[in-house]
Nucleic acid binder design. Structure first.
Lengths: 157, 157
DNA sequence: CATAAATATTTTGAGCTTGAAATATAAATA
DNA sequence: TATTTATATTTCAAGCTCAAAATATTTATG
């Protein structure tokens, strides 16, 4: 098949155009992955991606996080996590603990039930990602991770 | 500062772990960019990212798109675009046109006002992305785009 | 001490998002 | 033609998201 003129012949454009193209590709890739994650979490665990994200953050902080720390870690707005945590508390997956000496703040922590539930979800989650990103070798994934780490705040957070 | 053991010494892990790490980096990168885009669209154009996305899709299809085509292109749920389009129509930026021979469907198209408004937004948008991805050269952006293109459906859509 | 400024969090209002159910219409089939 | 099946879209309920305003409390300043 001799291609006189197809898309794969596309030559490199201006930096601005190439960066825009890259952004659109990244956006599409993350949407595809996110959509699948949401569906898997819903059908297999009857939960949502935001709930999973909150639990993941807390699982990395055994001692718990204040609401403001939680929204900082997740990079979402402050008021946002209030409702999500409310529902997770209702479900017995986490608890709010008063912070001694500061009656404004409270610390949120996973319960034992929450830790067990999250462990199951995290195991499945890693498997889903492994499948979806299967055409990245460990080496390529490692290199790309480093590149995007650098793009975000260097060694930041 | 001699580092006996820091994160930058991290050696490559299992494929599964490296893919998970890559996914978390991609997610963080797109969240950072998206957050900035949302804020810029809000403060400079009093609009939202979903509205921008819908207009961008239509700007690439002069002849218009059916609602189902629109949600397909944007990879969002069917009912989702209904409300967004409703508001954009209210604002005079697009119109619904009856499809001859099929009274179920309608075609959505930008108005002249919509085209002009989107042109302004798209110009600014490209500049924002250019800044945010500035540490990717045209060459690297080009190569990465190709890589993510391949990851998604090969030459697909 | 009183009051002002800062901090931690929740509430609020508008819009986005999803999957599922509801409508409406079209096409296929009995 | 009557009925079923498929298609296009909207509506619905629940939850997520944001920025801004409201509350409550703490810390700093006069």
């Amino acid at each position: 098949m001799t291609r006189a003129h197809s898309d794969s012949d596309a030559k490199i454009g201006t930096p601005s155009k190439e960066r825009l193209r890259l952004w659109l590709r990244l956006l599409r890739a993350s949407r595809v992955v996110e959509t699948q994650l949401r569906e898997n979490l819903r059908t297999e665990f009857d939960t949502t991606l935001p709930r999973f994200d909150v639990m993941a953050a807390l699982s990395r902080h055994e001692q718990g996080l204040k609401m403001s720390e939680l929204s900082g870690v997740l990079r979402v707005s402050n008021g946002n996590v209030t409702g999500i945590v409310d529902r997770l508390v209702e479900d017995g997956l986490m608890v709010r603990i008063a912070v001694p000496g500061d009656r404004r703040a409270s610390r949120v922590r996973l319960t034992q039930k929450g830790r067990e539930e999250f462990a199951r979800q995290a195991r499945a989650h890693e498997g889903w990602i492994d499948e979806m990103l299967e055409d990245f070798s460990a080496e390529e994934a490692f290199a790309l991770s480093a590149r995007f780490d650098q793009m975000n705040g260097g060694s930041g957070a």
